[in-house]
Design a protein around this nucleic acid. Sequence first.
DNA 1: GATATTTAAAATGTATGACATTTGAATTTG
DNA 2: CAAATTCAAATGTCATACATTTTAAATATC
Lengths: 240, 240
Amino acid sequence: MTPFKPVKQVKASEEVFNQLKSAIFKGQYLAGEKLPSERELIATFCVSRTVVRESIKALEASGLVQIKQGATGGAFIKELTFERLTSATKDLFFMNQMTFSEICEARLNIEPMVARLAAENCTEECAEKLRLACSKENDSLEYPETVMLRSHVHYLLADMCNNRYLTAIVKSMIQLVGRITEEFQPNTDEIHPAGLHDVIVEAVIAGDGAKAEREMYLHLKTFLTITQEIERQYRESLAS
Amino acid sequence: MTPFKPVKQVKASEEVFNQLKSAIFKGQYLAGEKLPSERELIATFCVSRTVVRESIKALEASGLVQIKQGATGGAFIKELTFERLTSATKDLFFMNQMTFSEICEARLNIEPMVARLAAENCTEECAEKLRLACSKENDSLEYPETVMLRSHVHYLLADMCNNRYLTAIVKSMIQLVGRITEEFQPNTDEIHPAGLHDVIVEAVIAGDGAKAEREMYLHLKTFLTITQEIERQYRESLAS
DNA sequence: GATATTTAAAATGTATGACATTTGAATTTG
DNA sequence: CAAATTCAAATGTCATACATTTTAAATATC
């Protein structure tokens, strides 16, 4: 055993990628700001344009920067939102690594708890938004607007729980269920008549967390069961 | 208004990326399989090597393929695990888009529910693993092994809930808390003595979901409060 | 014949130079 | 002053050459 350690041969593009990523994480570049241009990066890192471009491309694919072309173009730091979580979830779903049932079950278990948190944090401003959303649920019965209208309350409650992680998770689940619903376009008034959220919203506005949790669970239990059934029938019709 | 629609100028590399991604999503390439080599892709898409390489680089950064060099190298389809969710969560955390408290709160609300589900699905094989993990919690008090040992039960329970989405979420939260713990390296036996999980595991093995949920909540409430306090003190010491 | 060693081949990685395209800003023109 | 034009700076694409890595086959060595 020699006292020497192997010189780890890191690929140049990977090294550049890591350094840039670190800089971004350290806050050296803030959201909206621009990374140095390709030419400057070439000079800074002493590598070819190929390497610089591939590194930046990787940053873009990672969702950290957005590349714009043109005179004032460049790699702009993206505001790191929770969109990444949502998109990762979607990908898993569409690669059949996650079933619709799993989403529904998770939602059934998590969203009531979020409703409870929302009730504990409800301000007058929130209350107003909730009332408005409820009153507008009947404004359209056409797809895809109706899905947006009838799920608006769910989004508002997710925003109210004061926990961005939970907000992100819940929103991604709502989106996925919404997408499935849009695909099959069942009669909205049959599977999800307007006004179903009224009792939940009442409880939230009253600050009654326990009741909000209970009512949300009941609501989802009914709705998701129906939705799953629709999806099941669809798959059966395909098989026959 | 002319009847014409603008010809959207999609960048070639983006187009190639999308087509490859679609193919992967459609199951045209299974995990472990290899995408065509650069040369073949050049011929297939009629683009330059630059475009092909940047596309594949983007696929790699998206976590869909892993590139290997050498004679039998190429872009190999990765088994799409939930690792992507975890990494997205980590990034958000390290960019200060998510606080430690938010993670703790989410975990406190979700993991007890997962423990309940685990209790409802507990097989004899699972029970054996749980008992073993409990018995080994004292095998090391050194970092980082101790963190692994003392969190093993949590991982097992996450696996047992029979919902891969919940499993992924919980695991990523455990990892983040573990990482924080490692950073400060408090005396393990003080903040998390061995045997704390025994009562939870008992309940799970007995199939008592309600009790498992309750005990997990109590356990986490204590542990996470302490952890948050440690982190708070650390930040204060920095400020002074 | 078994085992090292060498060689060859196939794949990705990097460098370089040229040109194309996009886009905003400076400049000209009416 | 406003509209049109030109210009310049940035990214996007192409083509070619060579470097590096890795495996497998060919070859030499014992």
